[in-house]
Simulated assay, not measured.
Amino acid sequence: MSDFSSNSEFNRFRKHRFVHEKRLRSYPAVKLCRLGVSNALRGTGIGSILLSFMIRLYSRSSRAGCRFITVDAYQSAVPFYAKNDFLPLSNRDTSSYTRMMYFDLGTMADDGEDAITSRKI
């Protein structure tokens, strides 16, 4: 909750993303610590392929027991994560060196197998 400037900002976020939640103060997530691609392979789509693989892995498997994939993205990588459907957690870190972003795996559960295998890369 420390990522939000106020309780009301947290509540707006929570009510929008978790319609039938149990009023949790934290949510199960997997943190993606570092994802990098060699400069020689930059622009080839390999980063999106790897990210798509991780999203499919965690959306199909309940072993991790998570709902989100989170990342502290460097500002230069924010467009990459946004292109891959990650959303900023708050607006407080727009001028920071890194930006907290998340991907909601719950959106994959409703779309079915076809949406998972046809993710854009």
Rank of each mutant, 00 (worst) to 15 (best):
S96M: 10
I69M: 05
A40D: 14
G112Q: 14
I46L: 14
V30I: 12
A73P: 02
H16P: 01
D93S: 10
Y74M: 14
S52H: 11
I116P: 00
F53G: 05
P28C: 07
R60I: 09
V19D: 08
F53M: 10
I49A: 15
G43Y: 10
H16S: 02
M101N: 02
L32F: 12
R60V: 09
A29S: 04
D104Y: 00
N84W: 04
N11R: 04
K31L: 09
S52G: 13
N7C: 07
D110P: 03
T107P: 01
T70L: 11
F18P: 00
P88Y: 01
T44A: 08
S76K: 13
L35H: 01
S90V: 04
D93V: 07
I69D: 00
S95W: 09
Y27C: 13
V19H: 15
K31Y: 08
D72I: 02
R12T: 04
S38T: 05
M1G: 13
G47Q: 14
A29Y: 03
F86K: 00
S2F: 13
M54Y: 11
K22N: 13
D114Q: 14
M1E: 15
R34A: 12
S61R: 12
R12S: 02
R12H: 03
L89C: 12
T98S: 15
F13I: 07
C33K: 11
P79Q: 07
S59G: 07
K120P: 01
L105R: 03
N7I: 07
E21F: 14
L57R: 14
N11G: 00
F13W: 15
C33P: 01
V37A: 08
V37D: 03
A29D: 01
Y102E: 05
D3F: 11
D85H: 13
P28V: 07
S8D: 15
E21G: 15
Q75W: 11
S95A: 13
N11V: 04
I55E: 08
I55N: 05
R119H: 10
L89D: 15
S48H: 09
D3C: 07
I69C: 02
A64I: 08
Y102G: 00
S76W: 11
